[in-house]
Design a protein around this nucleic acid. Structure first.
Length: 275
DNA sequence: CGTTACCCCTGGAGGC
DNA sequence: TGCCTCCAGGGGTAAC
């Protein structure tokens, strides 16, 4: 469920609660998520004070620097992961895999499908971690503009939708926002990426930024003492123009929204508005 | 190198 | 009701 906006909303929700606080204890109830959760990881984290929380793509990065040296905790929510604050000693429910216990609160990681992960990155240069170092550009940065995208697409013959979802190209654009952004830009998801004109790249970049930003704003308004729910009826989902609207009328022209498969993922689009 | 297929895992929806 | 199949907002890796 989490795409970039959900992860960013989680980050913003976490900051006021745990930055500056020390992890007193860690509980792993599940030996394996996407990767093994080693006792070593547990040992590294315990006693660390969270200095700040950053984000790279859909990875949450907890700066755990201390006097003994730098280190970062990486958390990826996968498809079904969520982080939530619970009162101390709250009994765990099914799929509650990890607790980070602070003095006054507990941060609980739940993930039914276990596609999420927790990783330790030793040292201060977390961006060189194997899972992060080959990630593509952040879509909400100044450097991500039409000309940049045009260059990225130069040698890519795969469909544009597949390419903007490729985290080695652009991070954080998941299946929903890829569909919504292409609709907004009026570009067919099937178009070979390298065929997009500079003008279309400008439109697509604007659409991606707008889609992601709007979603962050919408999600941010609903966060209080818990950090992102487990999907379901997210505020943004109600605002989808094409995603999940197979056979329903296009909000712009009334034509029937189409559904196709691309690289194993569902793609929704309007065959009339998107060329 | 670029691209696709497969895999990790559980739960919910819908057909029979 | 139960059983079966398919689907799900991610992404790393192997293989072509």
């Amino acid at each position: 469920m989490p795409e970039l906006p959900e992860v960013e909303v989680s980050r913003l929700g976490l900051i006021p609660h745990i930055v500056g606080k020390t992890i007193r204890e860690v509980i792993f109830r599940t030996p394996k998520l996407r990767h093994d959760l080693t006792p070593t990881l547990l040992r590294y984290i315990t006693g660390r004070t969270i200095q700040r929380i950053e984000r790279r793509g859909k990875y949450l990065l907890f700066d755990c620097e201390c006097t003994q040296g730098g280190g970062w905790l990486l958390i990826h929510l996968g498809m079904s992961g969520s982080l939530r604050f619970v009162a101390p000693k709250t009994p765990p429910q099914k799929h509650d895999h990890v607790d980070l216990i602070f003095n006054d609160t507990t941060l609980r990681f739940r993930d039914p499908r276990r596609f999420g992960t927790l990783q330790w990155s030793e040292g201060s240069n977390v961006l060189q971690h194997p899972l992060l170092r080959s990630l593509g550009i952040e879509p909400l940065t100044h450097e991500f503009d039409g000309a940049h995208l045009h260059t990225l697409l130069h040698k890519r013959h795969a469909p544009i939708k597949t390419v903007i979802m490729d985290a080695h190209c652009i991070v954080g654009v998941g299946n929903i926002y890829a569909a919504e952004s292409l609709f907004k830009a009026g570009i067919a998801p099937t178009r070979p990426a390298h065929e997009l004109t500079l003008e279309q790249c400008n439109l697509l970049v604007a659409a991606i930024k707008e889609t992601l930003s709007e979603s962050i704003s919408a999600g941010g308004s609903s966060v209080r003492d818990y950090v992102h729910s487990d999907g379901g009826a997210g505020a943004y989902q109600l605002a989808c123009a094409v995603y999940g609207r197979h056979k329903l009328p296009c909000v712009r022209c009334g034509a029937s929204v189409a559904l196709i498969k691309q690289a194993g993922r569902s793609t929704f689009f309007c065959p009339h508005c998107q060329q």
